[in-house]
Design a protein around this nucleic acid. Structure first.
Lengths: 277, 277
DNA sequence: TTAAGTTACCCTCATATCGAGATGAACTCA
DNA sequence: TGAGTTCATCTCGATATGAGGGTAACTTAA
């Protein structure tokens, strides 16, 4: 449903007054993930003003609603997410490095009191990015950086005990936790792990993505067999990496992402057994 | 992030003026699904006013923001969804029949122009309900009914061609389509099919839920073996149904939902093969 | 009462997938 | 040069799945 259905459109616009409605602000926040040095990192910005001044937070900001006529300036939610990413980190938007990221909606967080100033509904997004340059603070951010997820002391997936996740502003620890759990699941049944790699990658590199996101080591032989057996996951480039592994070994072959949208059968993570109940 | 971080809280409240912001309305819509006569049904209401007057739409409405101080009246998003369900259908809220429904957030729809009157951000929810009585129209709804999903002529999952889904107001056909796909997926790896059944059910009844939601027949013997072999999916009550099947057969045993939150291994739907690319 | 048809529940069997381990060759580093 | 590491592939047993069969319990129609 929608605003007062007892008025039709023209009547509505003639009588429109924002004060008729409880004021609500809509923002987008982004959980942007990447792999650096074999570890999962999340993009954070340091808040430049109260509340939570000086604390780290997810990048995000207002959705440009475009006024009652929804003319120039109105933007869709994914566009707002990309714009905020670009503004607060200095990374160039579409066409640049941000053109290669996977972006999807994560969920919407709107509990009363989640922002002490007013009612704020935040539409959180999840982004998977290949290795990107260090961000430069911009917009409302006093600082911006890729932060190792392990360094945040987040509660484990599904574990929402209070007190264990206090280091991010607002409810962003919860949003990040949900984003991580979504990412872990997405790697199981979609080929999105390739979004963390560049255009070409090796099977061991792809495996390191899974190991970083899932936080556990995988059987190299079985992973190799599995990736190559799932239709459309990766396709060979015919080329070989110009160097072997850092500590020895033969030169791995190069692959690029295939055309599958779902992995069948899925790559199930071993630790799933513990989460069943 | 949040509204203008250059002001702290007290300063913000002293200077607060709704006109400082582009007006945005936040609503909740609900895709409520149930099984009736072996067919999947969705709860729809008929709009009583323009725009889309007389058309069917998903039940939903405004989120009570609670004003700038977020005092009494501010409600969380799931609470708003339950309230709208109750208001527009006459079904009693928590404690009544609605107390037994599963409710989860589906996604947020905020494209400019999705509501011709103003910028409306809708947080869609998905509800799984056991068989409920016929709704009574209330609130802004001129009518309310459980409608067979097959009768809506929706596009198949993933198929978003324009022109095939024109019979619901706003972008509700798209929201319903997304909700159906979510429901189909959830039945694979969660025990939520039991949410469509009452407190006690038989394996054939549970199978009919899967068949109704997935839209395909399942192998009765393999389904039976599978359900009983997945730990925590169902547990026996020891009792037996008081009648056999409608067209004969022995009396099936009764079960209730187990304590598992995830099904392992999952029940994969056969048709999944076609959706991979 | 009888016969025919339907269904729950259990079973078998071939195939597919998975976890764990082993092997050999290629490569790095000391 | 030698030791250690890693890629790529293979084997083997355990498990899961799809397809089909069989028996007994039950309904409906004759």
């Amino acid at each position: 449903m929608s605003p007062d259905p007892r008025r039709d459109e023209s009547e509505f616009l003639a009588n429109y007054d924002p004060r008729d409605y409880d004021p609500v602000a809509v923002t987008v926040d982004v959980v942007a993930l990447t792999i650096r040095d074999g570890a999962l990192h999340v993009l954070l910005v340091r808040r430049g003003a109260a509340p939570y001044e000086g604390m780290w937070a997810l990048p995000g900001g207002f959705v440009q609603a475009g006024g009652p006529l929804q003319g120039t300036g109105a933007e869709d939610l994914p566009d707002a997410a990309v714009r905020e990413l670009a503004e607060e980190t200095g990374l160039s938007a579409k066409g640049g490095v941000l053109g290669r990221v996977h972006l999807e909606q994560l969920g919407t967080y709107g509990s009363p009191g989640r922002d002490p100033r007013m009612r704020v509904i935040s539409v959180a997004h999840l982004a998977f990015a290949p290795e990107l340059p260090d961000p430069e603070a911009g917009g409302d951010a006093a600082d911006a950086a890729w932060v190792p997820v392990d360094a945040l002391g987040l509660a484990e997936s599904g574990d929402q005990r209070p007190g264990t996740t206090r280091r991010l502003a607002f409810d962003h620890a919860r949003i990040l936790s949900d984003g991580l759990e979504r990412a872990r699941g997405k790697l199981e049944y979609t080929p999105l792990a390739t979004a963390f790699c560049g255009g070409e990658f090796t099977i061991p590199e792809l495996r390191s993505v899974y190991e970083a996101v899932w936080g556990e080591e995988l059987h190299a032989g079985n992973f190799h067999r599995k990736v190559l057996s799932v239709p459309g996951f990766v396709e060979s480039t015919g080329a070989t990496s110009d160097r072997g592994g850092r500590r020895g070994g033969p030169r791995p072959r190069l692959y690029r992402a295939g055309d599958a949208r779902l992995l069948h059968p899925a790559l199930l993570r071993p630790s799933r057994e513990e989460e069943i109940r």
